[in-house]
C-alpha cells in the first residue's frame, strides 16, 4: 500500500486521464440520467420493439412508467445522449460523457451488473471515420502511453452505420508473443464499438442527416482499467474495498 494520505479510486484516475485528453481536444463533458425511458434507451437509437439487440442487453425494468408510457429502466448504455444532447444543442459539437450502464445478469470476474462506460460523440459537417480513428488513438495513447496502433473492422450496432469494431495493438506483447494471455497470441485486443451515427438517430435528435454527420463510440472503462492496472476481477471496482483503492 502506498503512503499518500488518501487515494482516488482507479476508475476515477482513469476517467480523469481520458476526459482530460478529450477536453484538450476540444470536447465538452456532459452527462445523462441513469433512470431512462424506453424511447431514449432503445427506440430513438433504432432499437424498436422486437429488435434482437434488445435481448442482448439484459435489461432491468423498473415499475416506474416513463413519459412514453413504458416502464423506465436503468440505462443499458450511455447512447441516450446521442439523442438527448442534440435535442438541446445545435451542431457542430463534440461531447464526452461517462457513468454506469446496467446489465441484468449473474456476476462473475468478467460480468458486472453495474459496469462503467465512457462514450464519445461528435457531429459536424465533415466529421468522418478518419477523425474517429484519430480521436480513439489519441486517448488510447494517453492511457497506455506512447502511440497506440488501432485496427478498424466491420461491426454492427443499431445506432451506427457503418458500424465498426476497434482493436488495439496488444499493450502487453505488442504482437510479439504467440502465447500472450492478454491477446491470445493475435497481437490485437478488442477494445470498443463505434461507427458513424445512423441517420435515423440523427433525425430523432432533430438533426438533419443531409447537412450533418457524426461519429460515436463507447469504451468499457472498467475493462480498460483491468488491462491498464492488471486488475483481475471486474467486481472489485464496486466492492467498496480499500484493498483495491489504497494501492492507487
Amino acid at each position: 500500500m502506498n503512503n499518500k494520505p488518501g487515494h482516488l479510486h482507479p476508475l476515477t484516475l482513469l476517467v480523469n486521464n481520458v476526459v482530460s485528453t478529450y477536453i484538450d481536444l476540444g470536447f465538452e463533458v456532459t452527462e445523462g440520467p441513469i433512470l431512462e425511458t424506453d424511447w431514449y434507451n432503445f427506440e430513438a437509437l433504432n432499437m424498436l420493439e422486437g429488435h434482437p439487440a434488445r435481448d442482448m442487453q439484459d435489461t432491468f425494468y423498473t415499475k416506474k412508467i416513463g413519459s412514453d408510457g413504458k416502464p423506465m429502466m436503468p440505462r443499458t448504455q450511455l447512447s441516450q445522449m446521442q439523442v438527448r444532447y442534440p435535442e438541446l444543442h445545435k451542431p457542430p459539437f463534440k461531447i464526452v460523457y461517462f457513468g454506469k450502464a446496467f446489465r441484468n445478469e449473474n456476476m462473475d470476474a468478467t460480468h458486472e451488473v453495474e459496469h462503467s462506460q465512457i462514450e464519445v460523440m461528435a457531429i459536424g459537417k465533415n466529421i468522418n471515420l478518419g477523425d474517429m480513428k484519430g480521436a480513439i488513438e489519441a486517448v488510447l495513447g494517453g492511457v497506455f502511453g506512447g502511440s497506440v496502433k488501432t485496427r478498424l473492422r466491420p461491426g454492427y450496432f443499431p445506432f451506427v452505420e457503418p458500424g465498426i469494431e476497434v482493436d488495439m495493438e496488444c499493450f502487453k506483447c505488442k504482437g510479439s508473443d504467440t502465447n500472450c494471455l492478454v491477446c491470445k497470441g493475435t497481437g490485437w485486443k478488442e477494445i470498443l464499438g463505434s461507427g458513424m451515427m445512423n441517420p435515423i438517430v440523427l433525425k430523432n435528435g432533430g438533426v438533419d442527416p443531409v447537412e450533418w454527420q457524426g461519429f460515436a463510440y463507447s469504451i468499457g472503462w472498467d475493462r480498460i482499467a483491468m488491462f491498464k492496472y492488471g486488475i483481475p476481477d471486474l467486481r472489485l471496482f464496486n466492492s467498496g474495498d480499500l484493498r483495491l483503492t489504497n494501492q492507487f
Binding site: 465538452e28 463534440k94 471515420l129 478498424l152
Partner: peptide, 19 residues
C-alpha cells in the same frame, strides 16, 4: 477500414462549456 488514415476533428468550430 484499415486504409483509413487517422485525423483529428476540427477544434475550432465549437466552444465547449465546463460541466
Amino acid at each position: 477500414y484499415r486504409n483509413i488514415q487517422a485525423t483529428l476533428p476540427d477544434k475550432n468550430d465549437f466552444k465547449p462549456k465546463v460541466h
